[in-house]
């Protein structure tokens, strides 16, 4: 009897001890992360939570979201932008990582690493202002083309729907490749040198070394980076808002700019919450893949 009590007490003490360690973090996580998410989902079922006594409207905000006249443009750009950005991040990141993983002078190598990582260092606001100055019709890029061609070039890089879509992908690729590059570089440095040596003894060329050893060895890193990058790109807001505001003519709208516009231009917070919930669901699909992949690894 005494033994059972002692055991129960010990179990209780262990549980309390475990809770005392994890409890504060769990409470903070719940308040800071989970509670706002739950509230956004709840708000999406009310007309406009900012207004007092806002009525419950069921799925009406979701219906309004899916029947928005600009939704097709938003979905189109979100897909194109995410695929384009992730592809360019991957390609540029991999290329530069391979180039930086060579045995050249260590001092020169650290300088190049510093330079290549620069776009990642600046905040989105700085990047947006800098690129605006570059891309304006009277900006640096057109001036360069004017000098090369010998006549005045006045392309409005952010002012025409199709051109603006392409331009935003390039700007985002510039801003985002350093993350991929550093991840790939870490992955490359963990590939055993003996694999390359063995392959070279077997007569493998440079391209065979890359496609048969480097890429397969990097695959786990590439998959993780692609999933993370897709999640971040889907949710990207400040760069797009500051450069184009989702325009021209909603051509560069993503679910993030849509949500912001509903909330702070139209003041439809119920509708904004519905859009945010849809965004959350889409992001969760990628998150599930990512978490699964991490478990497998």
């Amino acid at each position: 009897m005494i033994d059972t009590n002692l055991q129960t007490n010990k179990k209780l003490r262990n549980a309390l001890e475990a809770f005392s360690f994890t409890g504060p973090s769990a409470i903070i996580l719940f308040c800071v992360m989970l509670l706002p998410l739950i509230l956004v989902v709840v708000y999406s079922f009310f007309q406009n939570m900012v207004v007092e006594n806002s009525p419950f409207v069921g799925f009406s905000n979701y219906m309004r979201f899916f029947t928005d006249p600009d939704i097709f443009k938003m979905v189109r750009f979100t897909i194109v932008f995410t695929i384009g950005s992730v592809f360019l991040h991957l390609a540029v990141g991999l290329l530069l990582a391979v180039k930086l993983n060579t045995n050249i002078n260590r001092f020169a190598l650290s300088i190049f690493r510093g330079i290549f990582i620069l776009p990642w260092v600046f905040t989105a606001a700085v990047v947006a202002v800098a690129w605006q100055l570059i891309l304006l019709p009277q900006g640096i890029l057109n001036s360069m083309f004017s000098v090369i061609i010998g006549q005045r070039v006045l392309v409005n890089w952010l002012g025409k729907p199709l051109i603006a879509m392409g331009t935003l992908i390039v700007v985002n690729a510039w801003r985002g490749y350093p993350f991929c590059m550093t991840s790939f570089l870490a992955g490359l440095q963990s590939i055993p040198e003996s694999l390359y040596e063995a392959a070279q003894i077997d007569g493998a060329g440079r391209s065979q070394l890359f496609f048969r050893i480097t890429l397969p060895q990097l695959r786990p890193v590439i998959l993780s980076v692609v999933l993370l990058d897709a999640i971040w790109t889907l949710n990207l807001f400040p760069l797009i808002w500051l450069l184009t505001g989702g325009g021209p003519l909603s051509a560069t709208d993503t679910i993030a700019t849509f949500t912001y516009r509903y909330a702070f231009v139209d003041y439809q917070f119920g509708l904004a919450s519905a859009a945010a919930t849809i965004g959350l669901l889409v992001t969760m699909v990628f998150t599930v893949f990512y978490v699964r992949k991490q478990k497998v690894d």
């Binding site: 605006q132 891309l135 304006l136 019709p137 009277q138 006045l154 409005n156 952010l158 002012g159 025409k160 184009t244 325009g247 021209p248």
Partner: peptide, 8 residues
């Protein structure tokens, strides 16, 4: 009109 109306 100065170019860039839609972005300025």
């Amino acid at each position: 009109i100065m170019p860039g109306t839609t972005t300025k």
